[in-house]
Amino acid sequence: EAHAAIDTFTKYLDIDEDFATVLVEEGFSTLEELAYVPMKELLEIEGLDEPTVEALRERAKNALATIAQ
């Protein structure tokens, strides 16, 4: 499951495998979680700032909209 989540994140969020791995290690496994989890939870991840989190959430929401079509 972790590998599938990493693949999904790299494909749809335009991030590298290392960043995707950090997200999975922090407990995220779906685009929905990244799109809708409280921003505070993402900001608790070391190295993430508000602009990065906002961009990540926007990419996740856009990916979900694209997949739904």
Rank of each mutant, 00 (worst) to 15 (best):
I15T: 02
E54Y: 08
E32H: 09
K61N: 06
D16I: 04
D7M: 15
K11H: 09
E50C: 07
A4R: 12
I45V: 07
L31Q: 00
A55Q: 09
A63Q: 04
V24H: 06
D14N: 13
P38L: 08
F9V: 00
T66R: 11
E54C: 14
V53M: 09
E1K: 10
L48F: 09
D7E: 15
M39Y: 07
E54Q: 13
E26M: 15
E58W: 09
E46V: 13
K11L: 08
E33T: 07
E17R: 15
T10M: 15
E46F: 15
P38V: 06
S29N: 10
V24A: 07
A68R: 10
R57L: 10
Q69G: 11
V37I: 09
D49T: 08
I67Q: 07
T21R: 15
V24W: 15
E46P: 14
Y12I: 05
E17M: 10
A55T: 09
F28S: 00
E41W: 13
L64V: 05
E1W: 08
A20I: 03
E1R: 06
T66A: 13
L48A: 04
E44R: 15
A68T: 09
L56C: 02
E58V: 11
T21W: 15
E44F: 10
F19L: 14
L13D: 01
L64R: 02
R57N: 03
T10W: 05
R57F: 03
L48G: 02
E50K: 12
E32F: 11
V24P: 00
E46A: 13
A20F: 02
D18F: 12
A35C: 06
A5K: 07
L34D: 01
D16Q: 07
A68M: 09
A65P: 03
V22C: 07
D49M: 04
L13H: 00
M39P: 07
E58H: 09
H3Y: 10
E33M: 13
G27T: 01
D16H: 08
E58Q: 14
E50G: 12
Y12A: 05
P38I: 06
A55D: 08
E41M: 13
D18A: 14
P51A: 14
E33V: 08
Q69M: 06
N62S: 12
A68K: 11
A65T: 08
R59F: 04
I15H: 01
A65N: 10
G27H: 03
E44P: 05
T8P: 02
A5H: 05
N62F: 10
D14F: 14
L23D: 00
H3F: 10
F28C: 02
A63W: 04
K11W: 11
E32A: 10
I15D: 01
E41L: 14
F9P: 00
K61L: 13
D7G: 11
F28I: 08
E54A: 14
V22G: 04
Y12G: 02
T8L: 15
V22H: 10
E50H: 09
D16Y: 04
E17H: 12
E25A: 15
A55F: 09
L34H: 00
P51F: 13
V37F: 09
T21S: 10
T52F: 13
E46K: 13
E44T: 13
T52I: 09
A60T: 03
K11P: 00
T21L: 13
S29L: 15
I6D: 01
I67M: 10
A5C: 05
I6Y: 04
D18P: 08
A35F: 07
T8R: 13
K40W: 13
T10P: 00
A63E: 03
L13K: 01
E54S: 14
T52V: 08
A4Y: 10
A65E: 09
E32I: 08
D14P: 02
E17Q: 11
A60E: 01
A68N: 11
V24C: 04
T21Y: 13
E33S: 13
Y12N: 03
A60K: 01
L48M: 13
E26T: 14
E54T: 15
L48Y: 05
M39V: 12
M39G: 05
T66V: 13
A5F: 07
K40G: 10
L13C: 03
T8Q: 07
G27Q: 02
I67Y: 04
Y36T: 13
S29G: 07
A35M: 09
F9K: 00
E32C: 11
I45H: 04
L43Q: 05
D14W: 10
T66C: 09
A60C: 04
E46S: 14
F19N: 02
V37N: 10
S29E: 07
D14V: 06
L43H: 05
G27Y: 03
A35G: 03
G27C: 03
D49Q: 05
E1A: 13
A35E: 02
D14Q: 12
A2E: 10
T21C: 07
A5E: 03
L23Q: 00
P51C: 08
L43E: 03
F19P: 00
A55P: 01
T66D: 08
L13T: 02
V37K: 13
M39Q: 07
E17N: 10
T52P: 01
E33Q: 14
T8H: 09
K40I: 11
E46G: 10
F28N: 01
D16R: 06
E58K: 15
R57E: 01
F19E: 03
M39H: 07
N62M: 13
E1H: 11
V24Y: 14
E33G: 07
E26S: 15
R57T: 05
E32N: 07
A65Q: 10
D7W: 12
E41G: 08
H3T: 11
K40Q: 13
E58A: 10
A60S: 04
A68Y: 06
V53S: 07
P38F: 07
E33K: 11
D14Y: 12
G47P: 03
Y36G: 08
L34W: 02
I45E: 01
H3D: 09
K11M: 09
A4H: 12
L13M: 04
H3V: 11
A20R: 01
A5D: 03
E46T: 15
T66E: 12
A35K: 02
T10Y: 04
V37Y: 08
L43P: 04
Q69S: 11
E33C: 10
S29H: 13
E26R: 15
L43V: 06
L64C: 02
A4E: 08
E25G: 12
L64G: 01
T52L: 10
T30S: 10
D7T: 11
L64W: 04
A35S: 06
H3G: 10
E58I: 12
E33I: 13
E41N: 12
A4P: 10
D18N: 11
A60L: 05
Q69R: 09
M39I: 13
T30G: 04
Q69P: 07
V53P: 02
E50T: 09
E33L: 10
L42G: 03
D7L: 15
T66P: 03
A35V: 14
F9R: 01
R57D: 00
L34V: 09
A4T: 12
E44C: 08
L56Q: 00
Y12R: 02
L43W: 05
E54M: 12
L48D: 01
S29P: 02
E26Y: 15
L42A: 05
D18G: 13
I67N: 05
D16V: 04
M39C: 06
A35Y: 06
D49E: 06
T8W: 10
I67T: 05
T21A: 13
A2I: 13
D49W: 04
A55K: 12
V53E: 01
A63N: 02
E25P: 01
A65H: 10
